[in-house]
């Protein structure tokens, strides 16, 4: 295109009266290498506009705000399940502890009871023995402090 024609178009451009098609013509002219010397400032301008078209948005979009909420609530639900689960487990295990130590057969129960009582009396008599020592101590105290 001739530079006179370009200049005419440029004036129209500066007034804001060019169409998109005409502006594309200008961009094409200024991206070529035979730009008239006095029009060089425009080359920079249109070159910049052309170059700006290539900038891209590269950041990824976190598009699951709702799904994330679901995940959050799953966490809350899971912690409740664990809480109640452990609570129930402890209650149940306490209950079974109470059942332990009972016998269905009375004879075995008798034997076991005897065993337990024997063990108890053994310990009691061991205790009595040590009390006997105390008794002796008491007696000697009495003889001294009378």
């Amino acid at each position: 295109m001739e530079s006179a024609q370009i200049e005419q178009l440029l004036n129209k451009y500066l007034e804001g009266n060019t169409s998109i098609a005409e502006e594309r013509e200008l961009k094409a002219y200024f991206s070529s290498n035979n730009v008239a010397l006095h029009l060089l400032p425009y080359k920079e301008m249109f070159g910049y506009f052309k170059n700006q078209e290539e900038i891209q948005f590269t950041k990824t979009l976190p598009l699951q705000p709702r799904k994330r909420n679901v995940v959050k609530w799953i966490g809350v639900a899971a912690s409740f399940v664990i809480l109640f689960g452990t609570a129930l487990f402890y209650m149940n295990s306490n209950g079974t502890n109470e059942d332990l130590g009972t016998y269905d057969d009375p004879e075995i129960a008798l034997i076991e009871t005897q065993k337990a009582l024997e063990m108890l009396s053994e310990n009691v008599s061991y205790g009595v023995e040590s009390v006997a020592v105390l008794q002796e101590y008491n007696e000697s105290k009495k003889t001294i402090f009378k």
Binding site: Y13, L14, E15, G16, N17, L40, P41, Y42, E44, M45
Partner: peptide, 21 residues
Amino acid sequence: AVRVALSRARKMIKEKLVEKH
């Protein structure tokens, strides 16, 4: 208003570029 503002901006850019040139 868009055309007027655009025209002003284009002239300003051109003027500054010619100055710099």
